[in-house]
Structures are given as C-alpha cells and as structure tokens.
C-alpha cells in the first residue's frame, strides 16, 4: 500500500516504474547519437557533469514506430553504476500502487515479459511494472 509509481506509456501501453528506481526526470534537449550503437540506444545526453545513455524504450521492447509527439521528459534511472535516460511515449503521473505486484501473466508477449517484474494495480488502472535493469539491457540480451 502506498508505494509510489511513476506511470508512463511505452508503445501506447501503460508502464509503471517504482518511484525509488527513478533518480529524476530530465528534459532531453539534445541527444548525441552514437555511431554503431545498437538501435535501442538513442545516444548520449549530458546531465550536469554526467553523460546519460539514452534508451529508446520502444526499441528496447522491440516495438515498432516512434511516439508522436515524443515526450521531452525522460525518467533517469541508475543501473550498475551507470545512469540512463529512458525515452518513453509520455510521462503521465506519479500514482500510488494499490496492492502488491502480481506475477506477469503469460499473455504479455515475450518482449514485455522480459522487462516486466509484474502487474500492478493503480488508481489509473493496471500497468506493467518495469524491471529497469532488463529494460536498459536491450532486446539482444534476451537470448543470453
């Protein structure tokens, strides 16, 4: 009860992040693309004295298309000592979780199942609770 979630949309679907996973929300002004990077890495952006790796969440889920218009606000997460900014369709709101997460149903599909640590009920409806470490690892790690 009461644990906070950041509610976003990825590929048009509701996706929730644990508030404690989110360091901050930044406005992405400029993303420097990285040549030869896997396509789910949109590039690098500077946040104060740090360089953030910008992850395109849709591509990390192997979803087609780009959000229109894209949200310039991006949640910042830290995984393994590295900071990432997550490109999502849009950042909706911070909401309280209603109840504990339940195991992800089998019908999520393999891409979503890989990054989901469960389903969570919120006041704004159910959402997939995202495992940020799995998300920033990208679709290629799925095979490993």
């Amino acid at each position: 009860m009461g644990s906070l979630l950041l509610l976003t949309r990825i590929g048009g679907r509701p996706a929730a992040f644990r508030a404690e996973d989110i360091g901050s929300i930044v406005e992405l002004t400029e993303i420097a693309p990285v040549p030869r990077a896997p396509d789910f890495v949109a590039g690098l952006t500077g946040l104060r004295s740090r360089a953030l790796t910008v992850i395109d969440s849709r591509k990390a889920l192997a979803l087609p298309g780009t959000p229109d218009p894209p949200d310039v606000r991006a949640p910042v997460v830290e995984v393994g000592g590295h900071a990432y900014a997550l490109l999502v369709d849009r950042v909706d709101d911070v909401v309280a979780a209603e109840g504990e997460p339940t195991p992800p149903p089998a019908t999520l599909g393999p891409a979503w199942a890989r990054v989901a640590c469960g389903m969570i009920e919120t006041a704004a409806g159910p959402a997939v609770l995202i495992d940020v470490a799995a998300l920033v690892a990208g679709p290629h790690r799925a095979a490993a």
């Binding site: 400029e30 420097a32 990285v34 040549p35 030869r36 990077a37 896997p38 789910f40 890495v41 690098l44 952006t45 500077g46 104060r48 004295s49 740090r50 360089a51 953030l52 790796t53 393994g80 000592g81 590295h82 990432y84 920033v136 690892a137 990208g138």
Partner: peptide
C-alpha cells in the same frame, strides 16, 4: 566516465566525456 555496457559492447569507445559546453 565509464560507458554503459550497451556502448562498451560496441568495442570502439573507451569512455565518454563532457566538453566544456556540457555536450557528451
């Protein structure tokens, strides 16, 4: 600064740095 694993795996880059104007 060290690279995130996804960029490290490209095998071309040895780190990132910010220029004076804050661009990585």
């Amino acid at each position: 600064k060290p690279l995130s694993p996804a960029l490290e795996a490209i095998g071309l880059y040895g780190g990132t740095a910010l220029l004076d104007d804050g661009k990585p």
